[in-house]
């Protein structure tokens, strides 16, 4: 995986366990102290080694989202990957698919596999499409209450306490990335409080990012989706984009999505 996920939370956990060991014996105390010291210094060394490339854990939500960062994804459609694994991971992460009454065309999908075929040449490919986390997001512009919003770090999401369910954002999204909850839901996951009458969409697994983890689809993609900071020229995603390029879907609309694709 190209993103460096040495997690500060892990560091803290390890430090805690080292402290316990310190109490048990002198030998363990020395070992624990060394380990704790090492782990405290390690992130600094890591930062130094990677020539200032910021790791995901640096952004785990302690100070709120920062506009210094712009989270993005790069999808390599040329890789032989079963994209449905990403869909499954997303559904599991957000507890999707728990509708009992809705028709298929009413059910929520945060990410879908789109088959694209060139009728002229016969060339075809498939790719995952989710919220493209546009810089100039039409859904954010049209939302009357500001429920549809863009976080400072570029993640587009819906404030479910503010959404009145007018669906104007669904009309405005060129990527058809949004779904409306058509029925009463139960057994939601803790991190994704979905409810009847609100609009929802991929939130780039904001709960995971704030915890120093990658989005679920990225984790399930066998390396075909790279996640990282588009503002950081030293991040893997930026380096690959700089070297090999990447395209945005409907770039002609000039919305500057945060999701890039290779091979489209």
């Amino acid at each position: 995986m190209t993103i460096n996920i040495d997690n500060k939370n892990n560091d803290e956990t390890t430090t805690d366990s080292a402290s316990k060991e310190m109490e048990s014996s002198r030998r363990n105390f020395i070992f624990g102290s060394v380990a704790a010291a090492g782990l405290t210094v390690a992130p600094g060394i890591m930062l130094y080694q990677t020539a200032n490339a910021r790791s995901l854990s640096d952004f785990s939500l302690k100070e709120g989202a920062s506009s210094k960062v712009r989270w993005g994804m790069l999808v390599d459609t040329t890789k032989e990957v079963d994209w449905n694994k990403c869909v499954d991971a997303c559904n599991k992460e957000h507890g999707l698919g728990n509708e009992t009454n809705s028709r298929d065309e009413q059910k929520t999908q945060y990410i879908r596999v789109v088959e694209v075929k060139n009728k002229g040449t016969g060339y075809s490919m498939s790719l995952p499409v989710m919220c493209q986390h546009c810089e100039s997001a039409p859904c954010v512009d049209v939302c009357p209450t500001g429920a549809s919003m863009k976080r400072a770090d570029g993640i587009v999401l819906v404030d479910r306490h503010r959404c009145i369910g007018c669906r104007y954002c669904m009309m405005a999204c060129p990527y058809k990335a949004r779904s409306f909850v058509h029925e009463v839901l139960t057994d939601q996951t803790e991190n994704t409080p979905r409810g009847k009458g609100c609009v929802e969409s991929c939130n780039m697994c904001v709960n995971r990012i704030d915890n120093g983890q990658e989005p679920a689809c990225v984790e399930a993609s066998d390396g075909a989706i790279i996640f990282g900071d588009l503002n950081d020229s030293e991040s893997s995603i930026s380096k690959i984009l700089a070297k090999h390029g990447g395209k945005q879907i409907r770039a002609d609309l000039k919305l500057n999505p945060g999701v890039f694709y290779q091979g489209i």
Binding site: T145, G146, A147, R162, I164, C166, R167, Y168
Partner: peptide, 22 residues
């Protein structure tokens, strides 16, 4: 026809002035 008509008060108090709906 809103998904959440009970939130009328939100629509009347929280404005996004970029929105033509507002």
């Amino acid at each position: 026809d809103l998904g959440r008509p009970d939130r009328l008060i939100v629509a009347m108090t929280k404005f996004n002035f970029v929105s033509i709906f507002t």
